[in-house]
Amino acid sequence: MTVQADILTENAPDMRRIERRRALFWLLPPILWFVGFMLVPYAITLFYSFGRMDYVQFVAGFSLDNYVKVLTVQPYAGLILRSAKIGLLTAFWSTLLAYPVAIAMAFYLSSECAKHILYILVILPWWASYLVKAYAWKTILGTHGLLNEGLIWLGVIDEPLTVFLYNDFSIILTLTYIFTPFAVLSIYAQLERLPLSLIEAARDLGATGWETFIKVIWPISIPGVLAGGVITFSLGFGDFIAPALLGGADSIMISSVVISLLGVANDRPLAAAIGVAIILMAMALLTVSQYLEKRTQVRL
C-alpha cells in the first residue's frame, strides 16, 4: 500500500492529462487546416461580397447590391445555371462510363493482377497534366483532327466537320474524359463492399442478370454513384480551362466570369458575391446528397 502511495505522489503520469494532450495532438491539425484554408478565406470572400469598388480601391460596407446583381443582371445567374448544366452532363456521362468499369473491377476481374492493371489504366491519365489532355482532344476533334481524318478515310464524310470542336460537346467530352476516374473510384469503392455472395444469392434465387442488377447491385451502389456524381459535377461546374481551350464562342462558364471580374474589371466584390452564391449552392447540394447517401447507404 505504502509503495503505491509513493508512486502516486512522485510525478506519476496522469491518464486524463495524457488523454487530453493526445486529443489536442490529433485535433490541432484539422482545426488549423479548417481555419486556415476554409474559415478565413470564406470569411474574406464574404466580407468582400458586401463591399464595393471605388475606381481601383475597395470600399468596405454592408450592401446586398452585388447579390442583387448576381441574381438579376445577365449574364451571372444565367451562367451559374449554364455551368450547373455542364456539370450535370459531366456527372451524367462520367457515371455512365464509370459504372461498367467499376462493375468489371469489382466483380468480373477475378485475378488481382488484372484488377490492378485496370486500376492503373483508370488513374494513369492523371499523371498527365490537364492541359496536355485538353490539347490532345483538340488534335483529335479538330477540323483536320484524327476523328475527321478517320471519318474521311472511312468514306463516312467527304468534307471535315467542324461540329466536334469549339462547342459544348467538346467541353463536356473533355470534362467527362478527365473526371471519369473520380466516378470510377467512388463507385468502385462502394461496389467493392458488396459481397459477391449477394449476387450469387440473387442468381440462385432465380434472378436474371438484369434483375440482379436492378434489385441488388444498383440500390447498393447508389451512395457511390452519388459521391462520384457530386465530385464530377463540382469539378465540371467550376471548370474554366476546358471552356477556354475547347469551348466555342458561346462556351463561357461562371468561373471564367469570376476570373475576368478579378483580372479585367478588378471588381472583387462582385466576384466574391458570385463565389458566395456558388458556395451556398454547393452547401445545399452537399446537404441533399449527404442525406441521400445516408438514406441509401446499407450496413453490410
Binding site: S197, L198, A201, D204, L205, I220, T296, V298, R299
Partner: peptide, 19 residues
C-alpha cells in the same frame, strides 16, 4: 445456369440483401 435450377442455397455468409 443457377437461376434456372430448381434448388436454393443457404450461403455460408447468409448473403441477406442488406437494403
Amino acid at each position: 445456369p443457377a437461376s434456372h435450377r430448381d434448388m436454393r442455397m443457404m450461403f455460408q455468409d447468409l448473403a441477406l440483401f442488406p437494403h
